[in-house]
Design a protein around this nucleic acid. Structure first.
Lengths: 144, 144
DNA sequence: GCTTGACTTTGAGCGCGCTCCAAGTTGTAC
DNA sequence: GTACAACTTGGAGCGCGCTCAAAGTCAAGC
């Protein structure tokens, strides 16, 4: 038996998910029913691989499953849904941009705090005066 | 009655959390028992505000509650835990850097896909040939 | 024939981080 | 006095996104 295509294991490895997740995605309609070998086992195509990679990329950047479902649904409906699909992607891109900004703020804050810890450790080492530094104020925009 | 300090509502607004979350954080030891007014209501200090802002900043960048608990615990133990606390922050900073990389990759991918949608829409508008573009491969590093 | 292993299905379970509910207390305004 | 609003508590509930368990099928190797 070969019935060309990737096995579920292959696919899991190839797009960084578990087999559980692959079946789950199929169950909830994120991917159309996958082709089967004669023994009933799933066989993923290259097109499946590309789509799953895309899904993985969206999930990894915190797109909710619901939104991915909506996108997948529109995709099934063909080109006429282009505008709406584009809007979803544009919104998500904006969300990503906002996340990047927050992460960068936190990154900068941590650089500051880590430097402060180094100072404290230095003072301990030379037995100098130990003055606690107050928590740095870190106001971020409302979380996404 | 005044019993100086921020009320739980004030504090919630000030650091972008709900009152539920503030009580929850206290319950799980992320913040030491907060001072009380004579009627038993919480009154938050400036120091509480700074610490809560820091916690919010860490949560907003996906630090797990468990790790925040560990950090809070060490903080209670004083300067001798400086090294370990610094390690936590450094690790989290690295995690943030990794997240930024993933987000940037996804952002770039979306720019590409959005441009492609615009092309499709153009073709539809002029009634030209409609050729579906395959899903772009988007291999990201293993998710954080 | 029997074992092994990779798959199949349905449906339940779980960890996280809140979020909410019910019942009670306190202080202020009318 | 009585309504109202803002708080208190303990504990239950929930949405998300998986994750796993149980029981079964199928093909290959010994």
């Amino acid at each position: 038996m070969q019935d060309s295509g990737y096995t579920i294991q292959d696919m899991a490895k190839r797009c960084g998910m578990t087999t559980h997740t692959l079946r789950y995605y199929e169950r909830v309609g994120l991917i159309q029913p996958v082709g089967r070998a004669r023994n009933g086992h799933r066989r993923y195509s290259e097109a499946d691989a590309a789509w799953l990679n895309f899904l993985h990329c969206m999930r990894a950047t915190n797109m909710p499953i619901r939104e991915m479902q909506r996108y997948a649904e529109l995709r099934e409906l063909g080109d006429s849904t282009s505008l709406e699909r584009r809007k979803i992607l544009e919104d998500h891109q904006a969300a990503i941009a906002a996340q990047i900004v927050e992460l960068q703020k936190a990154h900068a804050l941590l650089t500051h705090k880590i430097a402060n810890y180094k100072k404290i450790e230095q003072r301990i080492r030379i037995g100098g005066p130990q003055v606690a530094e107050p928590e740095v104020d870190c106001s971020l925009a409302p979380a996404s």
